[in-house]
Every structure is written in C-alpha cells, then in structure tokens.
Design a protein around this nucleic acid. Structure first.
Length: 184
DNA sequence: CCGCCGATCTTT
DNA sequence: AAGATCGGCGGG
C-alpha cells in the first residue's frame, strides 16, 4: 500500500502535516484541524511508553492504521499510527471541521448547541463521525475501510499554531499539539 | 468566560 | 487508582 501522507516517521514530525487531511468515517467527512503527537519510549505521556500492551499493540503496528481507545469509561479517541513497524508512534486527532454529514453528526451529538461544537474535541469527533472500538486497527489508507484518511488542501503555515498538549499530567513541556488558527 | 466536579469503566 | 474527556453548574 502506498503512503500518500508521508507517514512512517516520528509522530511529532508527522502530526503537523496531517492538518488539512480529510477523514472519512461512517457518519460523515471532516477536515483535520487539531492534532497531538504521542511518541514511544521517549514520551511518558504515551500509551506506548511502557511497551506494547493489549490496548496499545496497534500503535506498534505499521503506519496508517487507526488506533481507537476508550477514555474515562465513556468517550473514544482516534489516532493515526505513524511510526515504522514496531516503533510505537501515533497522532491523536483532536478536532475536525465537519464537511459532509452535518445532519448525522447533529443526531450523534445532541448536546452540541452550535455546529462548531460538533467535533472540536477528540471524544466529540469520534461520537460525531461514528468511530468506536470496533474500528480499532483498520487500515486508514485502504479504500475499502469504513474509516479512511486522504490528503487534503495544505494548510497555510502562517495559520498553524503550536502548543503544549492538553489533558496530560506528565511531559507537559513537549510542544506537540498543533491546530489551525481559529479552530481551537 | 472561567473553574470545579461528577459521570463511567477500562487498563495497569 | 488514574485516566490523551465532556458537559452542567455556579460565580464573576
């Protein structure tokens, strides 16, 4: 399988390049506007930090697969595996701009008052797009998959903001969060 | 707008 | 026992 997205590198190199990419899922399609990098042995905040476990094993597989996990017992988070095989690298998708399937997303996110709140968070976008544990491990570059990733319009570098990651208690100094100005 | 807190359950 | 979150609530 070819790699049109330039994966197979450290997550902190890949993450900013995924801004603008298009995520296609069962309930809709969106443009990625916020991401975070999670590394391997070098990143105490990563699920891959202590080596592969039943939950994190997919992070150690080939690049281009989807890693989905349950957080706080009720929300899902979706990641793109980016490392070389056995490396343990992933990019958390933290926000998308809804493009197609707005009505379905509204149904999936009844609490969202405004459309801009439909998918501006890692748990929110999984709910909006209908992504769950059932999709863990599938190949995002395979056109037959129910969740797919493809290149989009490149984002103007002047619009990309870098910051520290959200919601972690260790390695807070890593500047591994990127978002498109105006979307986070 | 901001901060606090509870929900809910898997993983280690 | 903590967690890569979300949303409701109360105060300023």
């Amino acid at each position: 399988m070819t790699d049109p997205l330039g994966l197979g590198r450290h997550s902190s190199d890949v993450a900013p390049t995924l801004l603008g990419a298009i995520l296609e899922a069962p309930c809709g399609i969106g443009r990625i506007v916020e991401v975070e990098a999670y590394g391997g042995a070098d990143d105490p905040a990563s699920h891959a930090f202590r080596g592969a476990t039943p939950r994190s094993q997919i992070m150690f597989g080939p690049a281009g697969r989807l890693y989905v996990y349950l957080i706080y017992g009720m929300h899902h988070c979706a990641n793109v595996v980016t490392g070389a095989d056995g490396d343990g690298q992933a990019v958390l998708i933290r926000g998308i701009e809804p493009l197609v399937g707005i009505e379905a997303m509204r149904n999936n996110r009844p609490k969202a008052r405004r459309d801009r709140d439909l998918a501006n968070g890692p748990g929110k976008l999984c709910a909006a797009l209908g992504i769950g544990r059932a999709h863990d491990g599938l190949d995002l570059l395979d056109t037959a998959s129910s969740v797919r990733l493809r290149p989009g319009e490149p984002v103007d570098p002047d619009l990309v903001v870098t910051s520290s990651r959200i919601g972690i208690s260790v390695a807070q100094e890593f500047p591994w969060r990127w978002y498109v100005r105006g979307y986070a």
